[in-house]
Amino acid sequence: MTATTNHADTPAFTETMTMIEAIRDALTLEMARDERVVVLGEDVGVLGGVFRATDGLQQRFGERRVIDTPLAEGVIIGAAVGLAVSGLIPVPELQFLGFGHQAFHQIGQQVARFRFRSQGRHPMPITIRSPFGGGVRTPELHSDAFEAMYTNTPGLKVVTPADAYDAKGMLLAAIRDPDPVLFLEPLRGYRLVSGEVPTGDYMVPLGRSNVVREGDDVTLIAYSAAVQMCMKAAGVLSSEHGVSAHVLDLRSLVPLDVEGLVAAVERTGRVVIVHEAPLTSGFGAELAATIQREAFYSLQVPIERVTAPDTPYPLGGTEDFYVPQISDVVRGVLTAMER
């Protein structure tokens, strides 16, 4: 059992960056490279974003390309549609995915299907960036993991990097993608997760999963902040329970890397899916259905899902009971092992 080096092809010139720095680096690089790229959103300009993801962009690229909009998510995304039609490449920010509801009529009905509705005349090369997920004691209504609302929206890509290297490489791929991408950033990982990131240009293709830890007894499948948790759980499983966990970071939900998923399942025959969203209709349900269709005969036991319960995201004091913890992952794995 070896921890694989995450990114074997890392070029020579790298820097240690947090996820937020990697995201900023990608935005800076792409805005410098392609003058059609514009960034718009609440507090993205002078302040540089409430998490500083866009810090310095307005100073460097000016107020015409980095725009502090009035406070209205619907108009931010709706205007991005028009900007795209005009020939620009908008990278709007939703300050928190919780407020994606205020823009969902534009995202679900418009952004995702404009190419289809115009039968190819108007592609939507829009990348909507948004932090999501819990564990950091935000005020109410900020922390839900609503990814499944969007994966059930054909026409839209939904990607979920878990580390700094992927954050930069996938953001560059997303902005250059001719289709709309919802680029979800883990609130919890913004400053907590850091790693070696190439200083230059590179892309991590959308739709390729990544084995972040090799193991033989059980396969943990996760994305975004849950990946780090699975890595920690894998450590506990190894040291305290003698269980060797294989950890797959999906990186992208739509498109889904079915081949990578099947290979990871076949490796151990025991599957535990981990996400922060509630169980019912969570993305885990889609994964479980895909696995039973594509890898049924390699499954030794039923698929376990470790998720939030089917209840609303609570206030901070109850948050740790709600968001899956390392101990929940360990328990899920032990259940799968004992069957």
């Binding site: 209840t311 109850t318 009971f321 709600y322």
Partner: peptide, 8 residues
């Protein structure tokens, strides 16, 4: 104090 049962 907050408890897990409150979630439900």
């Amino acid at each position: 104090p907050p408890s897990a049962s409150q979630l439900f």
